[in-house]
Design a protein around this nucleic acid. Structure first.
Lengths: 231, 231
DNA sequence: CGCGATTTGTGCACGACTTCACAAGCGCCT
DNA sequence: AGGCGCTTGTGAAGTCGTGCACAAATCGCG
């Protein structure tokens, strides 16, 4: 499940706060999900919770990290050292959560050789060689959209089988290669949609029958993230 | 729906390529979704497609932008000018997709006054005043996790009703405030899970009955993003 | 040793979403 | 003017995820 990393983060927080065990209710609220859902998720990994007590925090962390394949620190290749790539190269969250940026790449010769956060920027043509040497299986694309497909092809050719794509475009990759996409502008546009919806709801308390399509009164469901819940 | 922004991006691409109309099949493949799903989505906004021809690209762009509330350029406040916040402040994708970073904030006094991409960094305490002046309704949190909840409270107090949270923690906000979360490390961890799954599948072609929980052979479904599809 | 409080694990039903398949509608060509 | 091919819009079935509610299990205490 895509929720396991969220549980893992909450568990690490609990461990640092000195908790040895945690109930499904407690962990669920810390991770922002329903307690029943959490229990079902955890039961799917044959988890070891104790009835009447809860889950052993340390053991559960170990279990989830194993399932996520985080027992080994995974090497990641980052392609595109522009605005966003630069920030990702220095993002501390990767290092503290089981990943190691093993190499930086860019197609712009003027950027090759630049040092970022202790790493040298290589030319994209050296990708295959370095990826093999560092046994890199995960690639991050932080290039402009027009270059993304080409970079993806090169990553696949270099043996990368999982890609995190920040470029606003769809990638086509061979079967067996996993792609996850993060589009920062889209996240804002979804929020904008919510804003628009809220605005029309308040200004038009009762939508008259003559109202064409102000903002789809009861149509779109506005899913995608949890609705806010009061403290 | 959360897919509308994706359609919009694909439509803009098509418009620039000179297409006047597009079939549901064509737009669906450009957006990376099923054509039936796309038609159903578009029909929910009472869309104007012509049978036998397809959709008018320009008209559809107009429709979707209206529904998303992008007819006005929305002002966004960005809090936290660290590694990630710095990159977001300079990210061109926001400006080209309907948003304007209206103000930057940070709690560190030594950063206040710094100029980034033509914008001055303000102290977080000035948030309420500036947010009102610029009529800001959307806030972006790019601070470390411990500061995020406090920043969220201040954003809400300043009248912000939609928050994009990059900090790895859950936020509790009053009802009526929408929160979307983007955790970059989690995206990588999900890919790591896929890697782990693929690795155990190839090394263990047939899972013996004695195999405990290698990586949940048929358990977890690995959803969350589309599986790769061949070119 | 037994009982009660507490918490996990899960069967079941409901709802949302996805996908298929097809009827209805539109334009074009003859 | 009429028919044919193409495309939209949608009914219906299937699938998946979610949440409730409860039985099973464990610990602590008397």
């Amino acid at each position: 499940m895509a929720r396991l990393p969220e549980y893992l983060r909450a568990l690490h927080n609990l461990a640092e706060t000195g908790h040895d065990t945690v109930s499904s209710e407690g962990l669920a609220s810390a991770a922002g999900v329903n307690s029943a859902k959490l229990r079902k998720d955890l039961s799917h990994l044959g988890s070891y919770g104790t009835r009447g007590v809860g889950y052993d925090v340390a053991l559960l962390i170990e279990q989830i990290e194993y399932v996520l394949g985080l027992t080994q620190r995974r090497a990641v290749a980052l392609v595109g050292v522009g605005n966003l790539g630069h920030a990702l190269a220095g993002y501390a969250g990767f290092a503290t959560r089981g990943f190691r940026i093993a190499a930086l790449f860019d197609a712009d010769p003027s950027r090759v050789g630049e040092r970022i956060n202790g790493l040298v920027v290589h030319h994209i043509d050296d990708l295959t060689q370095i990826a093999a040497a560092e046994s890199i299986a995960i690639g991050v694309i932080a290039t402009p959209a027009p270059a993304a497909q080409s970079v993806a092809d090169q990553l696949v050719a270099a043996g990368v089988t999982s890609i995190l794509n920040f470029a606003p475009c769809v990638l086509s990759v061979p079967e067996g290669v996993d792609v996850r996409k993060v589009d920062l502008a889209i996240e804002l546009q979804i929020l904008s949609f919510h804003e628009h919806r809220k605005a029309s709801l308040t200004s038009l308390p009762a939508t008259g029958p003559a109202g064409g399509l102000t903002a789809l009164p009861g149509g779109l469901s506005a899913t995608g993230t949890e609705e806010a819940v009061g403290t």
